[in-house]
Design a protein around this nucleic acid. Structure first.
Lengths: 337, 337
DNA sequence: CTGAAAGCGCTAACAC
DNA sequence: GTGTTAGCGCTTTCAG
């Protein structure tokens, strides 16, 4: 069923039907109702290819995922898409995915632009001196970043949680409980959030007059294996931290197990606080230890980023957004609370 | 630069230019050369939207990823896409991704079909009584499965490794080394590969007259945490297995650590063999224990599946493909080898 | 408020 | 071999 056929059925011109269905204001309310009813009745679906050609818009959003980081990005990415998809499909947009290896990133963006395959892209996990920013500007491609660029930057649009504040607060919380030997198992510091988290921790330690021990600040990919290894190292010394902050739940699970293997009881011999991206799949992840967590919902972030990007594409002006993580009291935070 | 403009530049009709660029045989070789040269010179890029409308083909392949399984599917999926993308972009196809939650799967496929957004889809990890098969047939949507359907099924197209044989061989290998107390930490048995792997192990045990111990065959999502827990249980009893087969490397890493924590030395007190999907990111995963592995390359599988699907879409007849995993001798297989 | 007409940029019959 | 002529199904001026 094409627009033309539908128009014939109800004795209107294709033009009017198109306008009615696309919410143009000049259409008579009654006419619109009639059109909508008929469209529903005949199950009319506009042909996207035709619409794309006529409007010049691709009606698609691109996501370029470098495989190097997919261990970290992937769980987050899937959850992000869940939220973003809601907006996309609501508005009839498709998601175009390009998985690339280390060196394929620039090419992928260039090709998307050249082929006019997408109207805009989402950039995940901005990095230090991120080359994607300049590239996308050069390509004149609208983009929204999930995460905040490290470098001060006028005019870019992003959504981020308040990493600095969250980690400062968590550290203050620990200090308030009486801790002074506090370690951080952070993500890779070439990604912006990790830089900010570290700064937050250091700020809180500084305020309290606690010396920063460089060997207690660990930066690595956030996997369970790495978390285990890092915590094992931290805890093996006689002079060990009494509290550990971790940057995500996988790391925390690893660290928690290392603590147990070292004969320590969480919430008693060791405090563990983790940032938790609230990934839904974790309900399946066995029975990980639970900690006081700073939660932020990735799928909501996806939802919001998608909204921001579509607004940007529509020509509206969009400002960066900072969300605060919610501080949640869980089990086994102790020892002094 | 449009086709028409390009045609004018070289004094040919748009038709001829189109034919030359699209490899139609009737074009004069010299003409074609001239066209190609001009296209390169002016950087002509065909407008995909127009081509799509004219041909009626979406020039896109769909991948619907249910989030429930993404813990398992995701690492595999990213690697798969790396291989598939090569074929897709070579042929000018886009990848359309839909991430859905538990109940959104059917809707997603229906919508892709209704909006003619894709020319075909790849179905990942076929399940027992997989509803997607009937659905896609109903929708008349070409599809290729990565993995083999559990139920015998005429006419469906898939690529699978020889799960049954691989696991049977690995088991025979262990038996040949003198083992008789062999456990399997398998994936979820509602996914087809796990059913076949179990059957392979049981066949080899049966041949050797070894009784199957149901409590030594464990079926669960393949995560490091689960692998640890399962191995811990298996090894805690006095009557413990001397060899463990695991279904993927994450599980193996977990199991390996459980063994170590139980005071066992791999390749001496315990043999560990794992299937390894050859995920490239694992080079970053710390320093996991290495085992005798049955390797299969997921990115090659993606490459091949994409090829099969595009052929299918082109109307060629395509048959299912079985690939053999390569059995690789690694470190620490012992104890008797 | 509605309609007629002209494309969007390409492909595909059909002629020559 | 190459060109001419119609579209693909929609949106969008421009009239009325």
């Amino acid at each position: 069923m094409t627009l033309k056929e539908l128009a014939q059925k109800i004795g209107l011109s294709p033009t009017t039907v198109s306008r009615a269905l696309n919410g143009y204001p000049e259409v008579n309310a009654e006419t619109r109702a009639r059109v909508e009813e008929a469209a529903a009745k005949y199950g009319y679906q506009p042909n996207n290819m035709a619409r794309r050609l006529a409007t010049g818009r691709a009606m698609a959003i691109g996501h370029v995922i470098p495989l190097t980081e997919h261990q970290m990005i992937n769980p987050v990415f899937a959850e992000f898409m869940l939220g973003a998809s809601e907006i996309y499909s609501e508005q009839g947009y498709d998601t175009i995915l390009r998985t690339v290896d280390v060196n394929g990133e620039e090419d992928a963006y260039r090709e998307l632009a050249r082929r006019r395959a997408v109207d805009g892209v989402i950039v995940h996990a901005p990095r230090r001196d991120d080359p994607r920013i300049a590239l996308l500007r050069e390509l004149n491609m609208p983009f929204v970043m999930h995460g905040r660029p490290v470098e001060a930057d006028e005019g870019s649009v992003w959504l981020d949680i308040n990493n600095h504040r969250s980690f400062a607060e968590a550290t203050r919380h620990l200090i308030g409980l009486g801790h002074s030997k506090i370690a951080l198992i952070n993500g890779l510091e070439r990604i912006s959030f990790a830089v900010r988290r570290r700064a937050g921790v250091e700020e809180a330690l500084g305020e309290a007059g606690i010396d920063i021990r460089p060997d207690w600040i660990i930066s690595q990919e956030m996997t369970e294996t790495n978390g285990y290894a890092a915590a094992e190292r931290l805890l093996s010394s006689g002079d060990r931290p009494t509290a550990i902050l971790t940057s995500n739940i996988m790391t925390a699970i690893g660290a928690g197990r290392a603590a147990r293997d070292a004969g320590l009881t969480l919430g008693q011999d060791l405090s563990l606080i983790t940032h938790d991206d609230d990934l839904s799949f974790l309900s399946n992840a066995g029975d990980p230890p639970r900690f006081t967590a700073m939660r932020s919902s990735i799928s909501e972030a996806g939802h919001k980023c998608a909204e921001m990007l579509l607004n940007l594409i529509a020509g509206e002006s969009v400002s960066p957004v900072v969300w605060n993580s919610v501080f949640v009291q869980g089990r086994s935070t102790g020892p002094l609370e």
